[in-house]
Nucleic acid binder design. Structure first.
Lengths: 221, 221
DNA sequence: AAACCTCCTGAACGACCGTTCACATTGGCC
DNA sequence: GGCCAATGTGAACGGTCGTTCAGGAGGTTT
C-alpha cells in the first residue's frame, strides 16, 4: 500500500514523507494546511487537499482537530499570540524613551512581517472565515497591539517628544496608530526577499517614516 | 405567482422589489452581488443567494453575465477604474507643486476609501478569486496608481521639496509609495462614520502624516 | 496470547455548488 | 391576430464538499 503510494504520488511525495517522519502528524497537518490556506485561501482548500499533502486521507484529520474551522483558528491564534508577545517585549526593552520605543516596535513588527509574511497574510486574510466565537480572542490581541502603539504615542506627546499632526487642533492617536499599523502590516502583502530592500533596510525605512509621521525630532540616520 | 412571492419572502422583499422596479435587472444583480460579497465573501456567496436577494431565480443570472466570475470582475473593475481616474484628476489639478500634488492625492484617496469603504474592501479582498486572465487589468491599474505616487515623490525629491528617510544613504521611493498607499487603502477596513473623525478630518490627518513621512516642509495646519 | 489503545483507511452520507436547458411569459411590431 | 426577441423559471446534471463511521494495522500492556 505504501509502495503503491510512493509510486502514484509524484512531485511532492518526498517532502510529504519527510515531513511525516520528521514530526508528529498534528504538526504536519498544521504545516500543510497553512501552506495551502496561504496559497489558495481557506474556503477553496478542501480537507482532502490538506491531508493528501501530508500523505494521509481525509478522515485522519478528525483524529487531531475537531473541524476544519478549528484547524484554521489554531494556525491563526498561534501566530497572533507570538506577535503580541514579541511586540510587548520589544517595547519593554526600549527603556522608556518614546522614540526608542516606537523605533523598537516598528523594527520588530516590520521585520516579523517581512520574514513571516505568509503567516501574517493568512492571519489577516482568512480571519473572516472563523465563526464568531473563535474570532473573539484574535480581535482582542489585535486591539492590545494597537493599544501598545497608542500608549507610546501618548507618552511621546505628553513628554513633548512627539508632535503629531492635528485636525481641528486635536490629535487622534488611535487613528494614527491604525495608520501606522496598517502600513507596517501590509508589508507582508508585497515584500519579497528578492526585491530592492533587505529586511533590515525595510525596518530602517519604516522606522524613519514612523518617527516622521509622529513629528519626532530628526534622528541621525 | 408574484402574489405568492410577496407573501412568502418576508424581511427583504420591500428592498428587493423596490430595486427590481427602480432599475434594470443587470444593475439589481450587480448591487445584490456586491452587497453579499462584501458581507460574506465571494466563494461562500452562491448564485442562488444573489438572485434571491433581487427577487429572481438562479438561472436568470446567465441572461446577464457569462459566469459568477465575470460578475465579480465587473464589480471590481468598475470600482478600480473610477479610483484610477479620480487619482489622476486630483494630481493633475494640483498645479505641479509636489506638496500640493501629494496632499491632493492623499485627500481624494482617503475620502474615497472612507466613503466607498465597502467597495474598496471587496475590490481588495476578493480580487484573488478572479482567474488570472481577468485579474491582469486590475493589477495594471494598481501599478498605475502606485506610479502616480512614485512620480510625485521623485519630483519632490528632485526639486528639494521632499527629504524622505534614507536607508544606507539611498531612497526607495517605490517602497515608500507602497507604505503610503497601504495606510490610506486600509482606512476602508476600520473607518466608520460613527467614529471619532469625519471623512474630512481623516483626509487632513492622513495628508499631514503623508507630508511628514516624505519630509516635506511643515505646513500651516 | 489476548486485550487494548492509537491512528489511519476509504466508502458512504446528505447537502449544496455553478451551470445548462427545455419551457413559460411578456411586450413590441408587422 | 401571429411572430419574434428578451427574459425568467425551476428541474436536472455532474461534481465536490465537510463530516462520520465501521473496520484494519501496529504497538504496548497485562
Amino acid at each position: 500500500m505504501s509502495k503503491r503510494k510512493t509510486v502514484l504520488v509524484e512531485e511532492e511525495s518526498m517532502a510529504a514523507v519527510a515531513e511525516r517522519e520528521a514530526r508528529p502528524p498534528v504538526e504536519a497537518i498544521r504545516a500543510a494546511a497553512f501552506a495551502q490556506f496561504a496559497e489558495r485561501g481557506y474556503p477553496v482548500v478542501t480537507v482532502r487537499d490538506i491531508m493528501k499533502a501530508c500523505g494521509l486521507t481525509q478522515g485522519a484529520l478528525y483524529n487531531h482537530f475537531k473541524s476544519k474551522d478549528e484547524l484554521l483558528h489554531d494556525i491563526i491564534a498561534s501566530t497572533q499570540g507570538e506577535l503580541e508577545r514579541q511586540c510587548q517585549q520589544a517595547v519593554a526593552g526600549a527603556g522608556g524613551d518614546p522614540c526608542a520605543e516606537l523605533a523598537a516596535f516598528v523594527r520588530v513588527y516590520v521585520i516579523r512581517h517581512c520574514r513571516l509574511r505568509i503567516e501574517a497574510l493568512v492571519a489577516n486574510r482568512e480571519i473572516g472565515w472563523l465563526d464568531s466565537a473563535r474570532v473573539a480572542d484574535i480581535r482582542r490581541s489585535r486591539r492590545a497591539i494597537r493599544d501598545i502603539v497608542v500608549t507610546i504615542l501618548r507618552h511621546g506627546v505628553e513628554k513633548g517628544v512627539f508632535d503629531p499632526p492635528r485636525v481641528d487642533g486635536k490629535h487622534d492617536l488611535k487613528a494614527m496608530a491604525m495608520a501606522l499599523l496598517d502600513q507596517c502590516t501590509h508589508v507582508s502583502m508585497w515584500y519579497g526577499p528578492g526585491g530592492d530592500l533587505t529586511e533590515e533596510q525595510m525596518a530602517k525605512l519604516y522606522t524613519g517614516m514612523a518617527l516622521r509621521m509622529v513629528g519626532a525630532a530628526p534622528q541621525p540616520a
